[in-house]
Simulated scan of single mutants.
Amino acid sequence: MIQIKILECSSKGDKRFSAFYAKVTIFGKFDSIENHYQLSKRFGDFVPSTWKDAKGKTPTHFEVKGKSFDLKYMSMWYDLLWVKYLDVHPELLEYAATFDDFNDIFKGKSINCQADSIRKYIKQGRSKVIEDGKDFIDLFKTK
Rank of each mutant, 00 (worst) to 15 (best):
Ile26Phe: 10
Lys29Leu: 09
Phe30Asp: 06
Asp31Pro: 00
Asp31Gly: 02
Ser32Asp: 00
Ile33Phe: 03
Gln38Phe: 05
Ser40Asn: 07
Asp45His: 08
Asp45Asn: 14
Phe46Lys: 08
Phe46Trp: 03
Val47Tyr: 00
Ser49Asn: 03
Thr50Tyr: 01
Thr50Trp: 01
Lys52Tyr: 06
Ala54Tyr: 03
Ala54Asp: 05
Lys55Leu: 13
Lys55Thr: 12
Thr58Cys: 04
Pro59Asp: 01
Pro59Gln: 03
Thr60Val: 06
Thr60Trp: 07
His61Arg: 13
His61Gln: 10
Phe62Trp: 09
Phe62Glu: 05
Val64Asp: 09
Val64Lys: 12
Val64Asn: 08
Val64Glu: 08
Lys67Asp: 05
Asp70Tyr: 09
Lys72Asn: 11
Lys72Leu: 08
Lys72Met: 10
Tyr73Gly: 10
Met76Asp: 15
Trp77Glu: 02
Trp77Thr: 00
Trp77Val: 09
Trp77Lys: 05
Trp77Arg: 05
Trp77Ala: 06
Tyr78Thr: 11
Asp79Cys: 13
Asp79Asn: 15
Trp82Met: 07
Trp82His: 05
Trp82Arg: 08
Lys84Gln: 14
Lys84Met: 15
Tyr85Gln: 04
Tyr85Ala: 03
Asp87Cys: 07
Val88Pro: 01
Glu91Val: 11
Glu91Gln: 14
Glu94Ala: 14
Glu94Gly: 05
Ala97Asp: 13
Ala97Phe: 06
Phe99Val: 08
Asp100Trp: 10
Asn103Leu: 13
Asn103Tyr: 15
Asp104Trp: 08
Ile105Lys: 13
Lys107Glu: 14
Gly108Phe: 12
